[in-house]
C-alpha cells in the first residue's frame, strides 16, 4: 500500500513538473510575450525594460525557466492588472477559490442526491416509465450547454419569478469571515441570516452546474446496479429470505457504488470547466468568473495562477480518488 502511494506521489511530481513547463511555454507564446502579459499592453518602455531585467528575460531559456519555477514556488505570480488591479495574483486566487469549491461541492451534492436513487430505481424497473424518462433526461442533459441552462434558471427563477437572487454570493455585507466558505462561516459564527443568504445564492448555480455530473452519475449507477442485480450473491441473499432493505443496502448498493465513486472523482475536471461558465452567468465570485474576466481584460498573472491551481487540484483529487479506490478494492494495487 505504501509503495503504491509513493509511486503515485512520484508521478504527481512528474505531472506537476510537466504542467509547469507547459505553463511556462504558454506564457512565452502569449501575444506580446511574457512582459506584455504581466504588465498589460499599455506599459511604458521603461517599466517593460525593468521587468525584462527583473525576470531575467534577457537570459537563455533554461535560466528563464528556472527563475520562473523559483518565483512560482515562492508564490510570486505577479500582480493582477485587470480583475482586481494591484492585488497579488496568489491572494486573488486564495480569496476566490473557496467560492468555487463551495459551488462545486453543492453541485456534486445535488447531483449525487438525485442520481443515486434515480439510478437505482431506474435499474430495478428496467424498461419502465421512470427508466425511460430518466435515460432521455440524462441524454438531453448532456446536449444542453451548461451556460444556457444557467441562463434559463436565472431567467425564470431569479428574474421572472424573483424567488432567488440574480447574482453574487452573499448580500449580507457585514458577515464575519472565518473559512472563506460563506455558508459554513455563517453556521460557525451563528449568523444564521448570512448563512441562509449565501445558501440562497448557491441554489441556482449549483443546480445548473449539477446537470453535468448528474447525467454521468445516473448512467453509471444504473449500469452498475444492473450488473450487480444479475450476480449470484443477490439471488442467494434473496433465497436466504433477507429483507429487501438489507439486500438493497448491504448487497446491491455496496457493490454497485464502487464504479460510482470513481465516476464522482472523475467529475472534478468537468465541474471546474462548468464552473467557469456557471460562475460567469451568475456573476459568482469564484475562480471561474475570475478566469473569464481575466481573459477579457488580458490579466495574465491571474490567468496563470488560476490555470496552475485548477490543474493542480484536478490532479490531486484524482490522486486521492486513486488511493481511496486502492483502499476499497485491493485488486487495484497490484495492477
Amino acid at each position: 500500500m505504501l509503495r503504491f502511494i509513493v509511486r503515485r506521489l512520484l508521478q504527481l511530481v512528474l505531472v506537476i513538473f510537466a504542467l509547469s513547463v507547459l505553463l511556462f511555454a504558454w506564457l512565452k507564446s502569449l501575444p506580446g510575450g511574457t512582459v506584455s502579459a504581466m504588465l498589460g499592453e499599455r506599459a511604458t518602455p521603461e517599466s517593460r525594460e525593468a521587468l525584462t531585467k527583473e525576470l531575467g528575460l534577457d537570459q537563455p531559456i533554461p535560466v528563464q525557466y528556472w527563475s520562473f519555477l523559483k518565483r512560482a514556488v515562492q508564490g510570486d505570480f505577479g500582480v493582477s492588472n485587470g480583475v482586481q488591479p494591484g492585488t497579488p495574483a496568489l491572494d486573488l486566487l486564495l480569496e476566490r477559490f473557496p467560492a468555487t469549491i463551495e459551488l462545486s461541492i453543492s453541485a456534486l451534492l445535488v447531483a449525487v442526491l438525485l442520481a443515486l436513487p434515480l439510478g437505482y430505481l431506474a435499474a430495478r424497473r428496467r424498461g419502465g416509465i421512470l427508466d425511460n424518462v430518466a435515460i432521455v433526461g440524462s441524454l438531453v442533459g448532456v446536449a444542453v450547454p451548461v451556460f444556457f441552462l444557467a441562463f434559463l434558471l436565472k431567467y425564470w427563477f431569479a428574474i421572472e419569478l424573483g424567488w432567488m437572487p440574480v447574482s453574487g454570493r452573499q448580500e449580507v455585507g457585514n458577515a464575519t469571515r472565518v473559512t472563506g466558505f460563506f455558508v459554513l462561516d455563517g453556521l460557525l459564527t451563528r449568523e444564521w441570516d448570512a448563512s441562509l443568504d449565501a445558501l440562497k445564492h448557491l441554489v441556482l448555480p449549483a443546480i445548473a452546474l449539477a446537470s453535468i455530473p448528474f447525467a454521468m452519475i445516473f448512467r453509471i449507477t444504473r449500469a452498475s446496479v444492473l450488473d450487480v442485480l444479475d450476480e449470484d450473491f443477490v439471488r442467494t441473499a434473496r433465497s436466504k429470505g433477507l429483507t429487501s432493505r438489507v439486500i438493497r443496502g448491504r448487497h446491491i448498493m455496496r457493490n454497485a457504488l464502487l464504479p460510482v465513486i470513481t465516476a464522482i472523482g472523475l467529475q472534478t475536471g468537468l465541474l471546474l470547466g462548468g464552473a467557469i461558465l456557471t460562475e460567469t452567468v451568475f456573476n459568482f465570485p469564484g475562480i471561474g468568473n475570475a478566469l473569464s474576466e481575466g481573459f477579457t481584460k488580458r490579466d495574465y498573472p491571474v490567468l496563470q495562477v488560476i490555470i496552475l491551481a485548477a490543474a493542480g487540484v484536478y490532479v490531486l483529487v484524482n490522486l486521492v480518488v486513486d488511493i481511496l479506490y486502492a483502499v476499497v478494492d485491493p485488486r487495484v494495487r497490484t495492477r
Partner: peptide, 21 residues
C-alpha cells in the same frame, strides 16, 4: 497524453485559445 488529460478539458481549450493573438 497523460499530462494533457490531467488538465480539465474546457480549461485546456480556454488556455489554448487565449494564446491566439
Amino acid at each position: 497524453v497523460d499530462v494533457m488529460l490531467s488538465i480539465p478539458s474546457l480549461l485546456l481549450a480556454f488556455s489554448i485559445s487565449a494564446v491566439a493573438s
